[in-house]
Amino acid sequence: SELKFANFMPPANPYQAGAFEPFAEKLAAATNNEITVHIYAGGELGPGPVEQFSRAVDGVADFAVGLPGYTASQFPVTLLTELPGVIDEETGTEVIWKNIALFKPEFKRAVLVSLWSNADNVLYTREKPVRTPDDVKGLKIRVPSRNAGLLVEAWGATPVSMPVPEIYNALQTGVIDGALIDGTGTKAFKLGEVSKYLTVGFDTTISPFFIVMNRDSFASLNDEQKAAIEEIGKEISVTANAVQLAAAHKGIDAFAEMDGKQVIRLSDEEAAAFNALADEARAKAIEEATASGIAAGDVVSALQAQ
């Protein structure tokens, strides 16, 4: 039967052709077309990233793609992967899958199909070039998640939360001074138009993505089909990560090429000043998570050991 795949991102997003369509194709091929997947892009099955996990849990869609950071309280362990200095953008997805058993229980309201780490978040600033923690002090910075908020606080700036589509207006109007988001922001959200500087090269958060499947839909499949989904889901995690990294790097390069815009690539020395603060933020997040009954220290050690 045909399964519904909810993608809240516009069809032109690189994920669509680079990861989601291959997911559908591989699944069809592996199951002799017993499972076909129709991808509804652009939020046709329901807009925005926030409710996507719900949509898969409740069965609006059979598959849904989303970000754990939008409903952080549901994924405290998974979100440990996004803490600065825990994984890096190149090998992160591999590390996540070596430890997948740690994260799976958090997705138990649905079935976890894919999970991958994103590109590093980078800092777009409206007017102020950021090279040292002093530069960033007191700035209002949009953060993608609670953990990113801790990081920004550790830098001495004020975190502001807002949905991605509002960053553009907020930067343009000075509601915020900067935004922490991955390098795809240059193109996908046109942040190149409303910021002058882009700082990269320090430890920041790396927001993970997931694809989940509705439990009943999964249960209705035979063992062979289930195995195919598990295997292809894992494979697509790696593909999706590669797609996103390429797009993010392209976004950073595109920013550098725009008139009057500057990409600030921190030297190791400059980065170290930020990274020391990031270590504090990580320690604080681990402490908080531990206080709420999660073996956060062990999880982070396991991830860092790779």
Partner: peptide, 15 residues
């Protein structure tokens, strides 16, 4: 049902 679910899993807003 969503209410019960949200209570069981202690769902809270992000910030």
């Amino acid at each position: 049902l969503k209410l019960l679910d949200a209570r069981e899993f202690e769902d809270v807003t992000n910030m």
